[in-house]
Design a protein around this nucleic acid. Structure first.
Lengths: 156, 156
DNA sequence: GGTGAAAGTAGCGCCCT
DNA sequence: AGGGCGCTACTTTCACC
């Protein structure tokens, strides 16, 4: 289990993967050696899976975010694999969840503009039998924490 | 504008913020100095906004992901601010979009379990007048690329 | 854009508390 | 389990070509 120090390390380090060990150690009031040991353990135990560079979506000419909900036409045996491979192939689809309730899937899509959605749409319906698909344009991203809360860990 | 090398750098570096310059330079067939100069420029021009540590959601006791859609009861003047501050305060709400169409907001929520959603729900309705809120449990995350496609940039 | 040297870091082992 | 030290190896950065 993790103690408060470990949680602090994850919380602070999470938003800056490139933070030098010296700074991280200082912020959690630990020597570099101790901090390095803890980091190694966190990595070892699978708490830390990797690091990412945070790119500027607008700069990459992807200012538009949309969400789409999909209902499947026929829940055939080969559908899951075909769906998976279709959404995998489309780079602009960044996130896909299979969900309970009156939809089957919820997608997040990033695009150069709203019109470009049509390209994605045509691509999808050309490869899959979709019963219903509705798209929602994000007018404003109110919150987008790329980090996770470190508050639900069982205390040690 | 960016040339193919710059795009390559972003594409490769994106999925590993901690990749040593030596490796990055080698993979794009550039000297370390040249690669470093390009990186500095990309940073300067705002393509790179920062870095993140990718944590293991399950390990953090947050194995459950849900999506929620919300319709506002009354579109009053003070609603946007109150909504923003409510969702900001709730750590488990990781993403919020204000959208067009027959919903007003779409949320992404991470949780220790499905039951915990009730806590979030009660928290939200205690602070806001919500006309309709429906939650969808993610049974399976089919795709979740934390990186962005680097394919829509105007070629130089 | 390439090269080479100089300064700064990380990571490791060690021993001690 | 943490602190402090010294070591080596590596990374970054800066001059210059």
């Amino acid at each position: 289990m993790l103690d408060e120090r470990d949680r602090q390390i994850l919380r602070i380090h999470q938003s800056d993967a490139c933070m030098p060990l010296s700074e991280l150690a200082e912020r959690v009031n630990l020597s570099q050696a101790a901090c390095s040991r803890r980091l190694a353990r966190l990595r070892q135990d699978g708490y830390i899976r990797g690091s990412l560079l945070l790119l500027n979506q607008a700069r990459l000419n992807l200012p538009t975010t949309m969400m789409a909900v999909i209902k499947v036409a026929n829940h055939t045996k080969d559908w899951p694999d075909r769906f998976r491979s279709a959404v995998s192939d489309i780079d602009e689809i960044v996130e896909v969840h299979r969900v309970t309730g009156n939809f089957d899937y919820i997608l997040k899509i990033v695009l150069p503009n709203v019109e470009y959605y049509d390209t994605i749409y045509k691509n999808l319906i050309s490869r899959l039998e979709i019963h219903e698909i509705s798209a929602y344009i994000s007018m404003e991203t109110i919150k987008d924490r790329k980090s996770l809360p470190v508050t639900h860990l069982p205390s040690s």
